[in-house]
């Protein structure tokens, strides 16, 4: 069973076609990169996958559940992190993790928070209010929150956007280790092409709501005769054809 199966997905707002008849799958244990310029349809696609949006047409299955009709069993087994969505600033890091531990019905919550604090180097920050943390620390807390339920599927929107290179590398290592340990699937939206090359088994390039290119990073680099994913991205984003 695929972690994600999207068939002929379309999302139309009154005057905008945000996602235009796309289909793709994410196999278990794989990492799929979702790339594209601003307005390409990445955020809409992720929102559709999370059930925040209902599609105009098409079908989304996540971990075997239809997201239009039966999203809660899937939401219980997946998680999401984005530096653009905050956690309550007045609550401490520990309290935030406790709240989400309850929302995801996590067993042995105290021990789980201890594990996550260690994994994301948050032990010294557990009793600090989330609002008093630096941008990089907040991102690490958001990632810890996204690991709270040991998700089988992780949707990550620019997970290292505000991190310094050292911490960014640390987070990428954590993601690789988590995938290796649990066999989890990851959908990663990122503008960091080096990160995409390192983490992703396959990449989907979106442009004006459609899929403009797909394949393994090395295969895409070879197909377009470029040196790296950065150049592939620029080529697809700037080309007239879709």
């Amino acid at each position: 069973m695929d972690a994600i199966r999207v068939e002929n997905l379309t999302k139309r707002y009154t005057h905008t076609l945000a996602v235009d008849d796309i289909s793709f799958t994410l196999a278990p244990g794989q990492t799929l990169g979702l790339l594209g310029g601003n307005g390409a349809g990445k955020t809409t696609t992720i929102s559709l996958l999370l059930g925040l949006l209902t599609p105009t047409a098409g079908r989304i299955q996540v971990l075997g559940h239809d997201m239009a009709r039966d999203r809660f069993p899937a939401l219980q087994r997946m998680n999401f992190s984005s530096p653009y969505i905050a956690l309550p600033a007045r609550l401490t890091v520990r309290e935030n993790l406790q709240v989400y531990g309850h929302l995801y019905s996590v067993p042995r919550l105290k021990a789980r928070i201890g594990e996550l604090a260690e994994r994301f180097n948050l032990t010294a920050l557990l009793n600090r209010p989330a609002g008093a943390l630096s941008a990089g620390q907040k991102t690490r807390v958001a990632l810890a929150k996204s690991f709270i339920n040991q998700p089988e599927l992780l949707l990550l929107d620019e997970p290292t956007a505000s991190l310094d290179p050292d911490t960014g590398d640390y987070v990428r290592t954590v993601l690789e280790a988590y995938k290796r340990e649990t066999g989890a699937s990851i959908l990663l939206a990122s503008h960091n092409m080096a990160e995409v090359e390192r983490l992703c088994d396959e990449v989907l390039m979106m442009k004006t709501g459609r899929i403009a290119g797909r394949g393994a990073p090395e295969a895409l680099i070879a197909r377009y005769g470029r040196e790296d994913m950065e150049q592939v991205f620029l080529h697809i984003a700037r080309s007239e054809e879709l």
Binding site: L50, G51, L52, F72, L75, Q76, N79, F80, S82, I85, A86, L87, P88, A89, R90, Y100, L103, Y104, S105, K145
Partner: peptide, 16 residues
Amino acid sequence: EEIWSRNLGHLFVSPL
């Protein structure tokens, strides 16, 4: 409070 703290996104993608 959930709107002000920009936390609604997290809540609505949880099983709540």
